[in-house]
Amino acid sequence: MGRKVRLWRWRCNPLRRRSYVVEGWIILGLASVTFVAAPLVGAVACEAVRDARAHERHERHVTAATLEEDAAPAAAGATRAGAVARWAAPDGTARIGRVPVTGQPRRGARVDVWTDRHGAVTAAPVSAAAARIDAVLAGVAIAAFICLLALAGRRIVGWQLDRRRSELWACEWTRVGPRWDRRNA
């Protein structure tokens, strides 16, 4: 059984080509960048998503709205219906619009709706636990993407260097081959 030689690209060998050394340095550089950049960028992405979710939770508020009409029954398979309601924006102006409601509340009923800082109806913010999960998943996804980019870069560089080595080998063989082939001499 043959022994696997580590760092063979840098060893002195009469058959070693310059492209092997270049390939070794490129692989080392990509690995270094990957091991440093992937966790760093993943942590930055995690923090950015966490901040965005916290900002979202800070800007969205529950507001009491009064229904202006009876709520229509929910469509088949839907859990929420919509109804026209009136509510006050944070600046005190009255707003009217369609809001989601659960069940079939009657006109004049008060329902809670989520609004943004301008008073527009919006979706409820994600919970703190869901925000943490979103942040971690975003960080892991970005880090994995950087690793995949590094692997793809290594593969592309390898293909290009192999192609170039094959071209050089073919050129050398056309020069040396006739001397080895006694039948054509």
Results as ranks from 00 to 15, higher is better:
1 M>W: 03
4 K>P: 03
10 W>H: 01
10 W>F: 11
13 N>R: 10
17 R>K: 10
17 R>F: 02
21 V>H: 04
22 V>M: 06
22 V>N: 00
22 V>Q: 01
23 E>Y: 11
23 E>S: 11
26 I>A: 08
27 I>K: 05
28 L>E: 14
28 L>Q: 09
30 L>Q: 08
31 A>F: 08
31 A>Q: 04
31 A>C: 06
33 V>Y: 09
34 T>W: 03
34 T>E: 00
35 F>N: 01
39 P>V: 02
39 P>I: 01
42 G>M: 00
42 G>K: 02
43 A>V: 01
46 C>I: 02
47 E>K: 15
55 H>D: 08
57 R>H: 07
60 R>V: 02
62 V>A: 02
62 V>L: 01
63 T>E: 09
67 L>C: 11
70 D>W: 12
70 D>S: 11
71 A>L: 06
73 P>H: 06
74 A>T: 10
74 A>P: 12
76 A>Y: 06
77 G>D: 15
78 A>M: 07
79 T>K: 15
80 R>V: 08
83 A>M: 03
83 A>Y: 01
86 R>S: 14
86 R>W: 09
91 D>K: 15
93 T>W: 06
98 R>A: 14
105 P>H: 04
106 R>N: 05
107 R>H: 05
108 G>K: 15
109 A>K: 12
109 A>S: 15
111 V>R: 01
112 D>L: 00
113 V>A: 06
116 D>H: 13
118 H>L: 10
124 A>T: 08
126 V>T: 10
128 A>T: 14
129 A>C: 05
129 A>P: 05
130 A>R: 14
130 A>N: 10
133 I>M: 12
133 I>Q: 15
134 D>Y: 07
136 V>M: 10
136 V>H: 11
138 A>S: 12
139 G>R: 02
140 V>Q: 06
143 A>S: 09
144 A>P: 07
148 L>T: 10
148 L>E: 03
149 L>H: 07
149 L>R: 06
149 L>N: 11
149 L>K: 05
152 A>K: 12
153 G>Q: 12
154 R>V: 11
156 I>N: 12
158 G>W: 12
160 Q>N: 12
161 L>E: 05
162 D>R: 15
164 R>W: 13
164 R>D: 11
165 R>F: 02
167 E>L: 15
168 L>F: 05
170 A>E: 04
174 T>H: 13
177 G>Q: 10
179 R>A: 10
180 W>S: 05
181 D>G: 03
183 R>L: 12
184 N>K: 11
